[in-house]
Computed example of a mutant assay.
Amino acid sequence: MEISEHEFEQAQTRTAEIRQAGHAVAARYDRKHGRVVVRLHNGVELAVPVGLVERLAGAAPDDLADIEVTPAGLGLHWPKLDADVYVPALMQGVFGSRRWMAAQLGASGGRATSKAKADAARANGRKGGRPSRSASA
């Protein structure tokens, strides 16, 4: 696939604009707290628990400790995991695919407790509880 000089220049301009918003200059794995700490060009540090990041959740600490920052500073790469994370997405709170993010949100909602949720569960129990699943043919 060939790209024109104009398309190449546009891509370089977009990359420069994205980098201005924030790019990584260093990254490390914080074993004690189980998180990736990314230092941005402006001195800001972003700490993200690895369990929230789709490609990193459940990975071994030794694999997480080996992090590379891409030359443009817009990506992080874990060679042992063959995993990549886009730094601007981390800054926006996007830790994986839409499906991954929806599953994380659903799981946290399911674990939530409140008086209203307890009252609803009690009321449902008085009605006989959750209906049993019928076998579909």
Rank of each mutant, 00 (worst) to 15 (best):
residue 56 L to F: 04
residue 56 L to A: 00
residue 56 L to I: 10
residue 56 L to Q: 03
residue 56 L to E: 01
residue 56 L to K: 05
residue 57 A to I: 03
residue 58 G to H: 03
residue 58 G to M: 08
residue 58 G to R: 07
residue 59 A to I: 01
residue 59 A to V: 05
residue 59 A to E: 06
residue 59 A to H: 07
residue 60 A to M: 07
residue 60 A to L: 12
residue 60 A to E: 14
residue 61 P to A: 15
residue 61 P to Y: 08
residue 61 P to G: 11
residue 62 D to V: 11
residue 62 D to A: 15
residue 62 D to S: 14
residue 62 D to Q: 14
residue 62 D to F: 02
residue 62 D to P: 07
residue 63 D to S: 12
residue 63 D to N: 10
residue 65 A to Q: 11
residue 65 A to D: 13
residue 65 A to N: 06
residue 65 A to T: 09
residue 66 D to S: 11
residue 66 D to M: 12
residue 66 D to I: 15
residue 67 I to E: 03
residue 67 I to G: 01
residue 67 I to P: 03
residue 67 I to S: 01
residue 67 I to Y: 05
residue 68 E to D: 11
residue 68 E to V: 00
residue 68 E to R: 08
residue 68 E to S: 06
residue 68 E to Q: 13
residue 69 V to T: 11
residue 69 V to S: 04
residue 69 V to A: 04
residue 70 T to F: 09
residue 70 T to K: 04
residue 70 T to S: 15
residue 70 T to M: 06
residue 71 P to R: 10
residue 71 P to S: 01
residue 72 A to H: 01
residue 72 A to Q: 14
residue 72 A to K: 02
residue 72 A to D: 14
residue 72 A to R: 09
residue 73 G to I: 09
residue 73 G to E: 04
residue 73 G to V: 06
residue 74 L to R: 07
residue 74 L to T: 04
residue 75 G to L: 06
residue 76 L to T: 01
residue 77 H to K: 05
residue 77 H to T: 02
residue 77 H to A: 13
residue 77 H to F: 15
residue 78 W to H: 05
residue 78 W to R: 10
residue 79 P to N: 02
residue 79 P to I: 02
residue 79 P to S: 06
residue 79 P to L: 12
residue 80 K to A: 14
residue 80 K to Y: 01
residue 80 K to E: 02
residue 80 K to L: 10
residue 80 K to R: 15
residue 81 L to R: 07
residue 81 L to F: 10
residue 81 L to S: 09
residue 82 D to L: 08
residue 82 D to M: 05
residue 82 D to Y: 02
residue 82 D to W: 00
residue 82 D to E: 14
residue 82 D to H: 08
residue 84 D to T: 15
residue 84 D to N: 15
residue 85 V to E: 14
residue 85 V to C: 07
residue 85 V to Q: 13
residue 85 V to M: 14
residue 85 V to I: 13
residue 86 Y to N: 14
residue 86 Y to T: 11
residue 86 Y to K: 08
residue 87 V to Y: 00
residue 87 V to E: 02
residue 87 V to M: 08
residue 87 V to K: 04
residue 87 V to L: 05
residue 87 V to S: 10
residue 87 V to I: 15
residue 87 V to Q: 03
residue 88 P to N: 07
residue 88 P to Q: 07
residue 88 P to A: 02
residue 89 A to F: 08
residue 89 A to S: 15
residue 89 A to P: 03
residue 89 A to L: 12
residue 90 L to C: 08
residue 91 M to A: 13
residue 91 M to F: 11
residue 91 M to I: 10
residue 92 Q to H: 06
residue 92 Q to D: 03
residue 93 G to C: 09
residue 93 G to V: 10
residue 93 G to M: 10
residue 93 G to W: 13
residue 93 G to D: 09
residue 93 G to K: 12
residue 94 V to W: 10
residue 94 V to R: 15
residue 94 V to G: 01
residue 94 V to K: 15
residue 95 F to V: 11
residue 95 F to R: 07
residue 95 F to K: 02
residue 96 G to M: 05
residue 97 S to Q: 15
